[in-house]
Design a protein around this nucleic acid. Sequence first.
RNA 1: GGAUCAGUAGCUCAGUAGGAUAGAGCAACGGCCUUCUAAGCCGUAGGUCGGAGGUUCGAACCCCCCCUGGUUCACCA
Length: 566
Amino acid sequence: MVNEKILAIAKLIKIDGVTEQEIIDSIAVPSDASLGDYCLPCFKFSKIIRKSPQMIANDLVNSFGNLTSPLVSANAVNGYINFYTDKLFTAKKVIGEILQKNENYGNSDIGKGATICIDYSSINIAKPFHIGHLCTTVIGGSLYKIYKKLGYNLVGINHLGDWGTQFGKLIVAFKKWSSEEELKARGMKALTEIYVKYHEESEKDASLDDKAREWFKKIEENDEEALRLFNIFKEVTIKEVGKTYDRLKITFDSYNGESFYNDKMQPVIDKLQQKQLLTESEGAKIVDLSEYGMPPCLIVKADGATLYATRDLAAAYYRKNTYNFEKCLYVVAYQQNLHFKQWFKVIELLGEPWYKSLVHVPFGMVSLEDGAMSTRKGKVVLLEDALNKAVEKSLVIIEQKSPDLEGKEEVAEMVGVGAIIFSALYNNRIKDIVFSYDKVLNFDGETGPYIQYTNARCNSVLEKLGSLDYEKADFDAINNPEGNAVIAALEAFPKILTDAIEKYEPCYVARYLVNLCQEFNRFYYAHRILNEKESVVIARAMLVKCTHVVIEEGLRLLGISAPKKM
RNA sequence: GGAUCAGUAGCUCAGUAGGAUAGAGCAACGGCCUUCUAAGCCGUAGGUCGGAGGUUCGAACCCCCCCUGGUUCACCA
C-alpha cells in the first residue's frame, strides 16, 4: 500500500525516462531498520543515465535540499538511497486512526457492491468430523471474515456431501439396529456405529447391499419414508457438527449440498449438448479436453448417472444466477486440482465469461505420524477430541500459572480451541501437515496462546489505568526503536488484509499477529508503562491500547477468541 | 510415464512482480521475575537456500537440465 511517505519520496526523485510510478514500485524497505525506513536501489538507473549507482544516489541526495516531514533525512550508501522518516508524524497518525476507529481499523470499502461465494468445510453427512476437515473449515471461515471486513457481501456455503448410496446403507442399518429415540439421544455416535456395523455385516450378508440400493432408489424417487429418514440423518449431523462450528466461530449462509442440485443438472447437460461440447466415449458422455492437455471431463456415466463434475457445474450456474458473485472460491484440498481445472475449463468452453471468477483455493494434506488417515480403519483424530485435549491442556496450564483466575473453564476453552485453529492457519495453505499432539499442544512461541497472552498483558495494563486524557500524551515516550517497531507493525495491518485476500492466505494475518506481538513484547520489556510521568504513561498506554485493538481484531479474523485474562 | 506442487538451520516453517550481512519458532545451552501477566524477554550455537548450468551490476526468488518427495491422470466424491 502506497502511503504518504512513499509518495513524498517519489516526488523527490527526478530521473529522465523514469516515471513516478516506476520510482514508487522500486521503493523498498531495507533489510535492517538501522539502514532507514525506506530505500531506493539505484542500480537499474545506471543503464539510463550512464553513471555508477553510487554516483546517481549521491547526485539525487544532493538534489533534495532540505527535507520536510514526513521525511527527515536521506543518505547514499552503496548505490542505495536510505530514507529516514518522521517517527512522530507516523506515530500520531497511526495511533490517532486506531483510537478513532477501534475494531474498524483496517476496514475498507474496496468490496462495496461485490459478492463473494466461498465453498468451504463441505462435510459429509453421517461421517465423523475429523482434523482433516479443519483446514478447509478455518481457512474458508477466515477468508469469509477478512473479505467481509473489506466491504464485500459474503455467501458462505457448506456444500454438504448428502447424496450417494451410503444413505441407502444407513437406512438399512438404522432400521435394523437403531431408532429415532437413539439418534436423538446419541446423535452422530449412533450413526457412525451403525454405519460401521453395516460394513461388518454386509461382508457376510450380500443381500444387505441389495436392500441398500433399493432404499437409495426410494430416496431418489422421493419415497416418503425414505426421505424422512434421510432428512433425519441430515439434521442429526448438522446439529452435531454445529456445536463444533460454534466453537470454531464458523457460520454458513447456505447448506445447499449435493442433493440440492439433483434437479439442476439436466439443464447443464442440455446446454453442453447444444454447444456440441458433449461427445460419447465408451458409453459415457464427456467433454473432450485433450486440446488443453487434460483428460476428458466426465459428465454422464455409461449407466446414465451424473458425476461430481456435473454437480459442480450445476452448482456454479445456480450460484452465479442466485448471487451473481464476483468470485466463487472453492476451499478444497489440492488432491482435486485437476478436477477444478477441468470443469472451470468446461465453463469457459460454454462461453461463460465468469469462468475467470471461479477460484480453487487448494490446501495441503493432513496425515498422522504413522501415515494417512482412514475413516474405515478408524485411523482418524476427531476434531472434537483434538479440541477437547487442547482445552484440557490449557486448563492444566491455567491451574499452574493463574490458579486464582476467574472463569478458568471459559478461558481454557478459548485458549485450547484458539491453539488448534491457529496451528491450522499459521503456514501457507499448500503445506502438508503431519498432525501431532506434541506440536499442536505446545503453547510456546509462534502459537495462538502466545498471541492471546500478549493481548491479555495489554489488557491487564489498561485495566490498571482509568480513562486517559490523550491530549496530554508525550509521544517522545514511544519514540524509541521498540516503540517505533510497534508503530510500524500497527501501520501495516490494513495492507496485510488486502494481501491476505489477494493470495487467499489467512496465514498472512496469523504471521502478522506473531510479528506484532514480538514487537510489542520487546517494547513491554524495555519500557515501563505504569508509574511514570503522566504524559509518558498516556503515550505508552495509547500504544498498548492500539496493540490490544489490532490483536483482538486480527484474532477475530482468524476465528480465535481473545480472553481478557489468562 | 504425463501433469502438477514442494525441497531453506537438528525439527516445523517465513521470506520470490530480483536488492544490502537469508529470518522466526521448537529442541539445546547460558542469562533475566523485591518493577506493569516468565504462555514472556535477551544471548550462544546451528545454513554450500536439493544439485549443476544460465540470465543479471545483483538470484533462495527468473530460465534450462537433473535428483528427491507428495498429489493426480475415465465412469468415487
